[in-house]
Design a protein around this nucleic acid. Structure first.
Lengths: 240, 240
DNA sequence: CGGTCTTTTGAGGCACATCAAATCACGTGG
DNA sequence: CCACGTGATTTGATGTGCCTCAAAAGACCG
């Protein structure tokens, strides 16, 4: 079961601005190309890495959509994030040289393999790359702060509204529509991420539809009233 | 209102093994001493940094106890963590050059100021330091995964049990008792961190006391039955 | 076209929130 | 040193948002 691999080059990658720092010269880019020489395909439902596996590389998502999730022995399951093209996955593995969660492809995907020891070497040479790595990790920390706020203080409608806004904003940054999106994950996975049961997710979708805020046809969602979603998230009624 | 500052040296700091990598030689340690040359005192209730402030430095806690929290315009408030001696605070600021949360001292505290640009310079020179910085950030990411699991899938008793076990474990690693601890935060702050209301925290404490699992006298907690706490966290009854 | 997985919707229950009040701890100033 | 005010904590009564259980409909796939 060897992973499928392909030759690759960051220097001519259209996602470069998402996963690489700006301000690198050609020579530096070529050095990075040598380090990030391998791509890997993951079929839908397949895992990029699993909890407990040795950590060697970070992965830059080129195409496809992933979830990361924790699974504990006692049967708890928590989706910790959804990742799309241009995002970096695998940061959890650095601290203990082993991954501490699973990364599962929600659709056929392709990632660039970035061996972490090579990345550290290059970081020591290129200040811009070093700072970029730091920023990526810091961004993930800040993102997780936001999820903690969501899980700790929001009600179901607020959580789902925030979730939709976040997804559509990230998709828009990648050139997709501001108002339409296709959910790559099930209601159950959304629920796990948001700390809700799948029935609650489904009911909340239905409520939004009734209120004319969104249209839902299966996994296809069209946002009719962004402002309504925003005002649900920035709810005034919880500051009493 | 200039912060109080003092000269400092990592090389003879008894917390070094907590916040610095092992395997540095004397020359390297001295270089770090020059970079981390300043300490800062924060009075109880004071802030080390606030949301929106420019980011310049990471802080290593020398003494005292902090909370970090998000506060949104709409009145939401979320404690994202509690930090104690030897822990690094401020990582959230790297990505946007501005802090995105508040760090508040819950008791009189003293921190070592580590200018981040100096830290990046030294990281380029000392592989061990570079890797250490990466590990610290990865550790924070993994910690937050755990909080997401807690907030997303645990019931009140499980959350509080996990919280107590985590606190006492960290205190024990610093030479304190395995079974006794003093809470530096209010019930409300615990509740905010755990996604619960302060009344629920108080009731759950009372329940644990009734069951003979802990003793509580104000902020002083004595753990009588660690195994009971562990089995509450590793609950079998939620895998049906 | 049958089987499986996903999603929706309903009915009822429960864990936690909310509201309220009393007690307690603590710091301050008389 | 005590009285007082303030904030923290506990406890009770009640409400409700989400969960649980259940069933049916719908989508997808071999």
């Amino acid at each position: 079961m060897t992973p499928q691999t392909i030759k690759v080059a960051c220097s001519n990658c259209n996602l470069r601005e998402l996963c690489m720092p700006v301000g690198l010269n050609d020579e530096q880019l070529q050095r990075i190309d040598e380090a990030v020489a391998v791509r890997r395909k993951v079929k839908r439902g397949g895992t990029l890495f699993r909890n407990g596996e040795a950590f060697t590389s970070l992965f830059a998502i080129r195409t496809g959509f992933f979830k990361t999730c924790l699974t504990t022995e006692d049967g708890r399951d928590q989706v910790t994030g959804f990742q799309m093209a241009g995002e970096i996955i695998g940061l959890d593995g650095i601290v203990n040289d082993h991954h501490s969660c699973d990364a599962v492809a929600l659709e056929d995907a392709e990632v660039c393999v970035m061996p972490f020891d090579r990345l550290e070497e290059l970081s020591r040479e290129f200040t811009a790359l070093q700072h970029h790595v730091h920023k990526i990790m810091s961004r993930e920390i800040v993102r997780e702060h936001g999820v903690m706020l969501l899980l700790g203080s929001m009600r179901a409608e607020e959580r789902l509204a925030a979730f939709l806004l976040n997804l559509v904003q990230r998709l828009h940054a990648r050139g997709f529509s501001q108002s339409e999106l296709i959910l790559r994950m099930t209601r159950e996975e959304i629920g796990s991420y948001l700390g809700l049961k799948l029935e609650t997710v489904s009911r909340t979708f239905s409520k939004f539809v009734e209120e004319g805020i969104i249209e839902v046809k299966q996994r296809h969602v069209r946002i009719l009233d962004v402002e309504a979603l925003r005002s649900i998230v920035n709810n005034q009624q919880n500051c009493h």
